[in-house]
Design a protein around this nucleic acid. Structure first.
Lengths: 150, 150
DNA sequence: GCAGGAATGTCAGGGACCTGTCAATAGTGT
DNA sequence: ACACTATTGACAGGTCCCTGACATTCCTGC
């Protein structure tokens, strides 16, 4: 490897993200899902009935981006929007049966990929990594400022 | 915060990247540099005379994106392109004196930010994190290929 | 030499995402 | 009840980055 520059960890994280994103995207192609769509599906499976704005916040993206992502999922018949009976501004979004099935198919694929990548590290080490990553994400908001979001 | 799902590490990394990017971008505003520009400046300081394609590979971006980034840096007078005497297709790119000065000013800012974020972790822990991140980036290329250094 | 393939910089076009804004609606204090 | 503010989903406009293509130039094998 190149021991060249003890790089800013920022760019290490960037490369890790690009790499992981690429691998996961590749794995999701066979399920006809994008990474963003998969993330949204995951959120909605865990928390049915979220609004568009909720999804946007959960996946750290702009409301409108979330709207477009959900639009794609809706066109694919994987989610459905329903009017929110207690708030006429917002819509509740639910996975359709097809959406649940699709997510159920895709999830093991992604998990397998991540498990393959995590191989070689002890649970303690992975816990450290996890803690560090969480610390970084908190630093943005807890440090005082807002996150621009990708 | 939401301790909800033990998430795919992929998305943890994404959030960490977004957060770090935000913090670093904020720190670089005062130096009138974007994150991508800072990264390019760094590469060129370490390896003067790189071509546009070289920079693109090193920062993991498309040739054209690198071209645009370098265009901005050139307009700002921070880098200069010179014809490559031994390859008439490519250009060699060098930092100008102003570029070196600007990088010298910005670097401590970024390092300070990262140091602040790394506080609370032992060197051993940070080494583990580093190793994990590198492992992730390597995984993208199929497990054994080259991946840029920054 | 020289034909074929690879690499370079660049252009055109598009996708994904963001900011800024808007009307409609919800919540809050007076 | 009523202003005031915040929030929601949507629209317009712009930015950033990417893919695909192209002519030019280098670098092979023959």
């Amino acid at each position: 490897m190149d021991a060249a520059l003890e790089p800013c960890s920022t760019f290490l994280v960037r490369h890790a993200w690009l790499a992981l994103r690429g691998v996961v995207a590749e794995a999701l192609v066979q399920h006809d899902l994008s990474v963003a769509q998969f993330a949204s599906l995951r959120m909605l499976d865990e928390s049915p009935g979220l609004s568009v704005a909720d999804v946007a916040r959960k996946v750290s993206t702009a409301r409108q981006s979330a709207n477009e992502i959900l639009g794609g999922l809706e066109r694919a018949g994987l989610v459905e929007r329903r009017p929110n009976p207690s708030d006429r501004r917002s819509q509740q979004i639910f996975l359709t049966e097809a959406g649940r099935v699709r997510l159920g198919e895709a999830m093991p694929t992604v998990e397998a990929v991540e498990a393959r990548l995590a191989a070689g590290f002890t649970p303690e080490e992975l816990a450290v990594v996890n803690a560090w990553l969480v610390r970084m994400t908190e630093a943005a908001t807890g440090g005082g400022e807002e996150i621009p979001a990708l």
